[in-house]
Design a protein around this nucleic acid. Structure first.
Length: 420
DNA sequence: TCTGGGGTCCTAGGACCC
DNA sequence: TCTGGGGTCCTAGGACCC
C-alpha cells in the first residue's frame, strides 16, 4: 500500500502557524511580484477566490482586511516543509518527497497494521510537531492514493483526514466520484480531449482500451491507466540530481528596448551562476527565452528561445553572461512588448566530475574570483554587481505583504508574550 | 494599470554513423 | 518499374506536475 500525505493549503497554513489569529479567516498567499493567488485557506476558497486569480481582482478585499494576503515567503515554507517531511519519514523506511507539501510513503509489510489508525497517527504527530494540517490517502497504488487523499480532504468531517481504499467496492466508488479533470496526470489538454469522447470520470478512463490510451496519451497515459485501475505500475522514484536549473521572471511593466531587456537577462544569468556555484554544479548549455505579454491580445505575440552549447561546463558568471548575450541578440526582435525572460542552465553536473574540454578550458582565475565574489555578497547582501546589471537596482520585486522568516533568521524569530 | 516560477518526461524527426 | 538495414544522439515541442 502507498500513503500520500499532503499538507492542506500549505503556504496559507504556514502563515497561520505563526499568526494563529488568522485561524478561521480567509488567507491567501501571492506569487512572486504579488502577481496572483497561489495558495488559499478554505475560507478564501469559499469566497470564490480561484487559484491564479490576479491580485488586482481581489485588491478591495485585501485592503478592507476581509482577506489576509501574504507575499510568498519561501524561506519559511521550505523550512516548514523540511520539518513536516522529517516527521513523516519516520513512518516508513521507503518514501518519496514528491513536492514541497507532499510525500508518498510505501507501507510494505504493514499487513497487520490498522492503516486508518496509522494515518491518524501521522496527523497527530505532524500537528503536534509543526502545527501544519495534513490529509492522508492510503491505497494499493500511487494514483489511487492520490484519489484517496482527495476524498480524505473533501469529506474531512467524515474521514477525520484519513481515507483508505482497501477493497474493490471502495475503489469503484472512488473512481466514479473522481472527475476526469481531477485525476493526477491528466491536465487541461487531455481532459478536454477525453470529455469529447464521453470520458467524464476516472472510472470511465480506466475502461478505455489500452491501444487508444497509448496512441493518444503515450506510455505515460497507459501507465497511469494501469495504476489507477489498481495494478501497481508507478513505484517510488529515487531522488535524482536535478538536470536543469532556471531563473525566470515576469517584469512589472512591459519592456521594449534592447538595453533594458539585456539588463534583466544579465541579472538573471548572474543569479543562475550564483545558484549553480552554491550547490557546486556547473552547466553544459544554456537556454535563453523571451516572451511578449500574453494578456495583451492586441499586440504582436512573440515567444522565442535559443539553446547554446558551451565549449566547456562552467559556472562562471563571466562566461555564462557572454554566451547568454550572444543568444539574446539572436532572438531579440524590435517592436515587441516583452513581459518575461529567463535563462535556464541545462546539463547540470557536479563541479568535480564535469566533462573537461580538450582545447578550451576556463581561465583558472574564475574559480577563485567567484569564490571571493560570493563570499563578499553573502556578507554584504549583493553589493558586488556585474557591469551589465543595473547598479541602482530599481527592479525590486514587489512583495508588500511579506511575513517574517520566523524559522531561519534569529532576529526575525517569533516573540512570545506571557501574561501572568 | 495590475495576471508566478521551477521543474520532469516522452516523442518525432533530423543528422549522423557503419 | 525497381535504390538497404540498423543504429545513436540531439533537440524542439507538447504534455504534465507542484
Amino acid at each position: 500500500m502507498f500513503a500520500l500525505v499532503d499538507c492542506n493549503n500549505f503556504y496559507a497554513s504556514c502563515e497561520r502557524v505563526f499568526n494563529p489569529a488568522l485561524n478561521g479567516k480567509p488567507v491567501v498567499v501571492l506569487s512572486n511580484n504579488d502577481g496572483c493567488v497561489i495558495a488559499r485557506s478554505n475560507e478564501a476558497k469559499q469566497l470564490n477566490i480561484k487559484m491564479g486569480t490576479p491580485t488586482f481582482v481581489i485588491k478591495d478585499m485585501i485592503a478592507s482586511k476581509r482577506v489576509h494576503a501574504f507575499s510568498s515567503n519561501y524561506a519559511l515554507y521550505g523550512e516548514m516543509s523540511a520539518r513536516v517531511m522529517e516527521i513523516l519519514s519516520r513512518f516508513s523506511p521507503d518514501y518519496e518527497v514528491y513536492s514541497i507539501d507532499e510525500i508518498f510513503i510505501k507501507l510494505e509489510g504493514f499487513t497487520y497494521h490498522n492503516l486508518r489508525e496509522y494515518g491518524a497517527k501521522m496527523i497527530s504527530k505532524v500537528t503536534k510537531g509543526t502545527g501544519i494540517p495534513i490529509s492522508v490517502g492510503i491505497a494499493p497504488t500511487k494514483a489511487l492514493a492520490k484519489v484517496a487523499n482527495k476524498i480524505a480532504k473533501k469529506f474531512i468531517h467524515k474521514t477525520g483526514g484519513v481515507h483508505v481504499i482497501d477493497s474493490e467496492e471502495l475503489m469503484e466508488k472512488a473512481l466514479l466520484w473522481t472527475q476526469i479533470d481531477d485525476v493526477w496526470g491528466i491536465g487541461r489538454r487531455y481532459a478536454e480531449k477525453l470529455k469529447k469522447i464521453g470520458v467524464t470520470t476516472a472510472r470511465d478512463f480506466t475502461q478505455l482500451p489500452d491501444a487508444y490510451v497509448l496512441k493518444e496519451m503515450t506510455v505515460v497515459g497507459l501507465r497511469l491507466k494501469r495504476d489507477l485501475s489498481g495494478k501497481p505500475t508507478l513505484d517510488l522514484e529515487e531522488m535524482a540530481d536535478r538536470k536543469n536549473m532556471a531563473v525566470t521572471r515576469s517584469f512589472k511593466n512591459d519592456i521594449t528596448d534592447y538595453a533594458a531587456l539585456r539588463e534583466r537577462v544579465v541579472t538573471y544569468v548572474t543569479k543562475l551562476a550564483e545558484k549553480l556555484r552554491k550547490q557546486n554544479s556547473c552547466c553544459q548549455s544554456l537556454q535563453i527565452f523571451i516572451h511578449s505579454n500574453p494578456h495583451k491580445k492586441e499586440h504582436r505575440k512573440y515567444y522565442n528561445s535559443v539553446t547554446i552549447n558551451l565549449p566547456y561546463a562552467t559556472n562562471s558568471t563571466i562566461v555564462m553572461t557572454q554566451y547568454t548575450l550572444k543568444g539574446l541578440q539572436k532572438i531579440f526582435l524590435k517592436g515587441i512588448l516583452y513581459k518575461k525572460a529567463g535563462v535556464i542552465a541545462l546539463g547540470l553536473a557536479p563541479n568535480d566530475s564535469r566533462q573537461l574540454a580538450i582545447f578550451k578550458e576556463e581561465t583558472a582565475e574564475h574559480a577563485a574570483l567567484f569564490s571571493s565574489v560570493d563570499h563578499l555578497n553573502k556578507k554584504n547582501h549583493g553589493k558586488i554587481k556585474f557591469a551589465g546589471q543595473d547598479l541602482n537596482s530599481t527592479w525590486k520585486m514587489r512583495c508588500e505583504h511579506l511575513s517574517k522568516r520566523y524559522t531561519t533568521r534569529l532576529h526575525e524569530i517569533i516573540t512570545i508574550r506571557c501574561n501572568h
